[in-house]
Amino acid sequence: MIDERALLEALNSTPMVDGRPRDLWADAAALRRWAQEHGGSGDAPAIDWLRTARDLLQRATRGPVPEAELRRLLTGVHRLPEIGASGLRWRLQAPPERVLAVELVLAWYDVQARRPGRLRPCGNDECRLFLLDRSRANTARWCSMKTCGNRLKARRHQERARQAPQS
């Protein structure tokens, strides 16, 4: 199952490491483990769809939603109501190789609906990570205050110090 934590893991699977972009999902074995930890099969077609979904959702979080590409991923997908002892439950019906990728997309849309404007890219232009702002004021700017926030604040302070007139 894809929850908010798993969604952020997926979105943040392409970090900058030592100034270079890195794709943690380029390693099929690592992605297979991630998929299996979240209820997926981890077979090759499912892994391809997961990468596709991740890339589309990263684009959608940074800018306009790539609707045509998401429609392609969601073609033939349905949610069916099931009533049982525990009440109403919605069962996802999708081609097996796309189930986890579809769950990832549904989790993204769920966050957009429940927490509008809270899922966004880090405010550090040199960072490729995303954050889900859980603060009351919705003012978080960085994926991590410890890394990106402090780094940018220190850089701005140094720039102001350089520009200040010397007496």
Rank of each mutant, 00 (worst) to 15 (best):
M1Q: 07
R5L: 12
A6G: 03
L7K: 00
L7G: 00
T14E: 03
M16T: 09
G19Y: 01
G19A: 04
R20M: 10
P21Y: 09
R22S: 03
R22N: 06
R33G: 09
A35P: 15
H38F: 12
S41Y: 06
S41D: 08
S41M: 10
S41H: 11
G42D: 08
D43V: 15
D43C: 15
A46F: 10
A46I: 09
I47D: 13
D48N: 14
W49Y: 13
L50D: 03
L50H: 08
L50F: 02
D55P: 00
L56D: 01
Q58A: 11
R62A: 09
G63F: 06
P64L: 12
P64H: 13
A68P: 05
L70I: 12
L70Y: 05
L70V: 02
R72N: 14
R72Q: 14
R72L: 14
L74A: 10
T75P: 07
G76L: 11
H78K: 14
P81W: 04
E82D: 15
E82F: 15
G84V: 07
A85F: 12
S86Y: 09
W90Y: 15
L92C: 05
Q93Y: 08
P95Y: 02
V102K: 02
W108D: 04
D110Q: 14
V111S: 12
V111H: 09
Q112R: 13
P116L: 06
P116A: 08
P116T: 04
G117K: 08
G117W: 11
R118P: 13
N124E: 09
E126L: 15
E126N: 13
E126Y: 06
E126S: 15
C127W: 10
L131K: 05
D133P: 06
A137N: 00
T139S: 04
S144Q: 04
K146L: 07
K146R: 07
N150A: 08
L152I: 08
K153S: 02
Q158W: 13
Q158N: 14
Q158V: 12
A161E: 13
Q163F: 12
Q163I: 06
P165T: 11
S167W: 11
